[in-house]
Nucleic acid binder design. Structure first.
Length: 872
RNA sequence: GCGAAAGUGGCGGAAUUGGCAGACGCACCAGACUUAGGAUCUGGCGGGGAAACUCGUGGGGGUUCAAGUCCCCCCUUUCGCACCA
């Protein structure tokens, strides 16, 4: 039990010394492992699950972490005081590349490096006074966690949700591994901004996220306690579009009608040899198909290779086009890519119009969206229009442009091109003329289906999640390849597949595990013959996709968690409050949603969404830029704590800005908060003996005016903070309100000294002040709480209630405006009626002076707010 | 280019519904106390003006007795998306 920091007498100055108070309380708390422990579901209390995103154990907390955790900790502490059974856990996202890089650099095994970092960060967190239930700590790189990744993988494999296929994948040469689509930003690696991602053909494991694409999209509407920004980002990422597939038949050379061929062709005789087959395009605007004047293929489209087989010139031109694009990317970046195209010499028949149209290769067509082929409708698509203008391709209007206001002078249809709106009707479209665009889309897709050359189609931008990584420090994929039986999953009772230690990590390509024969070579569980293990490991985002379920039952060695316990903590809607950076809006938060739906279909959970309320806090910036080593503007939390204490550091991170906005770190501000805490400490020190004396006395039945002022401020402060915790979370103004209260209290010191405020009133003020400080400055609050004679934890004390009557103002100042300009302020009792207020205002000397000689046209009286005289 | 958020003193930021613009804090200025401190306390602190007053929330219009707040147009910044057919 800590002893009071100082014996205080009325006049003795006591110094606030956080470097003495805070470690003392930290030691006390460390010795009570159950202090922050969540109770079992049987406790009968309502639950509250508050979670901050688990960190990667880099070994050093940064200010962004501190801010994130300060927000979560304030919430958790407040919920505890409200009487909830709070689950507030913490863990480590401990697999990943940095450990391997560190291994190469320092010749330390990844496991050792990671566990040492975790220990260091756990110490930092304790020093900050974060209220985590460490008995539930999870570390994703340990077998008791990652074995369940493997278990889930097997379950998904059984259900066809995990599958293997050869495909073009994103390859980062720097990481020497494959990246998910989500990890490629502007064609570059998410970890290596300067490194361009290459495309490689590899056998990879995928999770079928697309099976849930529709539900992932639809359920976004239910997540009304998520930021709109995040929902929009996910919606765009999933990228659902409704449209149609249409087959265009390639015409034999001799059938080709000689047509207007606008540009000079670069064709040799061999290129004109026969090719056959169909090209299928995806379009969302089948209503414009009569306006299709060419077909565009992605350069990687298989048909391009087929055409090029007999046409070396085409092959060369396509190659040259790709090189030109590469060079443009290098010089101008992604922003301004010029559209490039090459005519293949081939034609297809438009199944609707029967017209023959040329087939081109175009750099703006993407192979991995839709079918990699489009129909080009220059009159009604911006990109096609640009392309057609450049290459002199025919432009055919098939949608009647609707004239908008101001366009009367430009009644030539051509001047309105490209007309891309869907609010008009078809023309030049045979039997479909005069139909509205939207109606035509349905009818034409159905028509194509009826005739067998197309069908309605929904396409998603979302791809299946490629999880294979050619790295060591990750979860081994529990799969064997048998010479006889092919792909064989590791039997469930043989889990976990342990990651071997003492593996040589090098920067060379390929999975490090493939150089460990004792890991790789095994017997097939089916036939006993020779087999080899899968040597790729799982993407680390697998680990974080379900970790928050593990917290509910972290020590379970029979299952990832007990569904009944998870059902208690997740309820129907998921985690009550999840807090983290917006940078995880897509990756982590889509994978987590997918994983929850998958688990629901396995019968493990009842909820369909993992997170009910999501909060994304702003970044910590300094001198106008995000804190980063490269910018040299990093502020170390350790440094701040050493100088100002943990309370001041975390309180400043809540005070300097509302939590959802970026926070500009100014050290002078931390000093200011520290001064404030010091003022609190000195005030409490001076008045504590009187407050303690008042502890056993009841509050007086009626207050003196000074007492009443104090009580009013106190209850107004409680009211304000209580309301803010309910959802607005403007902790900056909460802390400002506490400062105002303390300013009032210190201003009243002479009155207190003179005995004009009774001890019981002083006790109420002091006690409640300490309770209000609890969520924001837990060390100082604990210290003062104990000085007040309390022995139980502050967390178990009930959050103070406010009394509306005590908080109410009895006298208010009412501004009096004349023609909207402030001319006087009259002081009236609260509850003054409209008529009384009008008379008081008109009788005011200043007001009289201002209206002399003028006619009062109108008097606006808003009781409790203001009076406005309109004069002439 | 598309979408979202934001723009208020020297600075971070206040101002639930339209109702006293600038709470709280920082910095700064003046003073007090001093066994000089990175200490504490008191007062001041948007611009102009001696004052009465007056101007003032990115710019321009509008609605209203009243606009930081609502409507229209424009500018800037940040973030996200970016050839998605």
């Amino acid at each position: 039990m800590p002893s009071p920091a100082a014996v205080v007498t009325a006049d003795q100055e006591v110094r606030y010394n956080p470097s003495e108070i805070e470690p003392r309380w930290q030691a006390t708390w460390d010795a009570q492992p159950d202090l922050y422990a969540a109770e079992p579901p049987t406790c009968g209390k309502p639950k509250y699950y508050v979670l901050e995103m688990l960190p990667y154990p880099s070994g050093q907390l940064h200010m962004g972490h501190v801010r994130n955790y300060a927000i979560g900790d304030a919430l958790a502490r407040h919920q505890w005081m409200l009487g909830y059974n709070v689950l507030h856990p913490m863990g480590w996202d401990a697999f990943g590349l940095p450990a391997e890089n560190a291994a190469i650099k320092n010749n330390t095994p990844p496991r050792e490096w990671t566990l040492a970092n975790i220990a260091a960060m756990r110490r930092q967190m304790a020093r900050i006074g974060l209220s985590y239930d460490w008995q539930r700590e999870i570390t994703t790189c340990l077998p008791d966690y990652y074995r369940w990744n493997q278990w889930f993988f097997l379950k998904m494999y059984e259900r066809g949700l995990a599958y293997r296929k050869k495909s073009k994948v994103n390859w980062c040469p720097e990481c020497a591994t494959v990246l998910a689509n989500e990890q490629v930003i502007d064609g570059r690696c998410w970890r290596h901004e300067e490194t361009k991602v290459e495309q490689r053909d590899l056998e990879q494991w995928f999770l079928r996220t697309t099976r849930y694409a529709d539900e992932l999209l639809r359920d976004l509407d239910k997540l009304d306690a998520w930021p709109d920004k995040v929902r929009t980002m996910q919606r765009n990422w999933i990228g659902r579009s409704e449209g149609a597939l249409v087959d265009f038949e390639i015409q034999r050379q001799e059938e080709r009608t000689p047509s207007r061929q606008p540009i000079k062709l670069n064709l040799t005789e061999t290129a004109l040899e026969e090719s056959s087959g169909t090209i299928t395009v995806f379009t969302t605007r089948i209503d414009t198909i009569y306006g299709a004047t060419s077909i565009q293929l992605a350069p990687e489209h298989p048909m391009v290779a087929q055409f090029a087989r007999n046409n070396s010139e085409l092959a060369r031109d396509v190659q040259a086009m790709l090189e030109q694009q590469e060079a443009a990317l290098e010089n101008e970046g992604f922003n301004e890519l010029e559209k490039l195209g090459i005519f293949t010499g081939h034609y297809v028949r438009n199944p609707f119009s029967e017209e023959l149209i040329p087939v081109w290769v175009a750099n703006y067509v993407l192979m991995d969206y839709g079918t990699g082929a489009i129909m080009s409708v220059p009159a009604h698509d911006g990109r096609d229009y640009e392309f057609a203008q450049k290459y002199k391709i025919e432009i055919k209007i098939v949608i009647l442009p609707r004239r908008t206001e101001g366009s009367e002078n430009h009644n030539k249809q051509e001047s309105m091109l490209p007309y891309t709106e869907e609010d008009s009707m078809l023309m030049n479209s045979g039997p479909f003329d005069m139909l509205g665009c939207v109606e035509a889309q349905q009818k034409m897709a159905a028509y194509a289906q009826g005739k067998g050359f197309g069908k309605p189609m929904v396409t998603f931008r979302l791809k299946d999640w490629g999880i294979s990584r050619q790295r060591y420090w990750g979860t081994p994929i529990p799969i064997l390849y048998c010479e006889k039986d092919g792909i064989v999953p590791v039997p469930e009772d043989q889990l976990p597949v342990l990651l071997p230690e003492n593996v040589e990590i090098t920067q060379q390509g390929g999975s490090p595990l493939s150089r460990v024969p004792e890991f790789m070579n095994v017997k097939c569980p089916r036939c006993g013959g020779p087999a080899r293990r899968e040597t790729d490991t799982m993407d680390t985002f697998v680990d974080s996709s379900w970790y928050f379920y593990r917290y509910t039952d972290a020590k379970n060695n029979q299952a990832p968690f007990d569904p009944a316990i998870a059902a208690y903590w997740f309820g129907e809607k998921g985690i009550d409050q999840y807090i983290g950076g917006v940078e995880h809006a897509i990756l982590h938060l889509i994978y987590s949603r997918f994983w929850t739906k998958m688990m629901r279909d396995l019968g493990l959970v009842k909820n369909s969404e993992p997170v009910q309320r999501l909060f994304t806090q702003g970044m910590v910036i300094k001198n106008g830029a995000k804190m980063s080593k490269s910018k040299g503007n990093v502020v170390s939390p350790d440094d701040m704590i050493a100088r100002y204490g943990a309370d001041a550091t975390r309180m400043y991170s809540l005070f300097a800005a509302p939590p959802d906005r970026d926070l500009d770190w100014q050290e002078d501000g931390v000093a200011g908060v520290s001064r404030f805490l010091s003022r609190v400490y000195r005030f409490a020190g001076k008045t504590m003996p009187r407050a303690i004396a008042g502890r056993s006395q009841p509050l007086p039945a009626s207050f003196t005016p000074v007492e009443q002022n104090l009580m009013r401020k106190l209850h107004q402060t409680i009211r304000r903070i209580s309301h803010d915790f309910e959802g607005r979370w403007h902790f900056n103004t909460c802390i400002a309100a506490i400062m105002e209260l303390v300013n009032d209290l210190t201003a009243a010191e002479p009155t207190i000294k003179a005995g004009a405020i009774r001890d019981s009133v002083l006790y109420a003020a002091t006690r409640n002040l300490i309770l209000l400080l609890g969520p924001f400055a837990p060390f100082l609050a604990a210290e003062l709480w104990s000085q007040l004679g309390e022995t139980a934890s502050l967390l178990r004390a009930p959050w103070p209630a406010f009394d509306e009557k005590l908080a109410a103002e009895d006298v208010i100042g009412i501004p009096v405006q004349i023609n909207g300009k402030l001319r006087a302020v009259v002081t009236v009792p609260a509850g003054t009626t409209e008529n009384e207020l009008r008379e008081i205002a008109l009788a005011d000397e200043k007001v009289k002076a201002s209206v002399t000689g003028k006619e009062i046209v109108k008097v606006i009286v808003v009781p409790g707010k203001l009076v406005n005289l309109v004069v002439r």
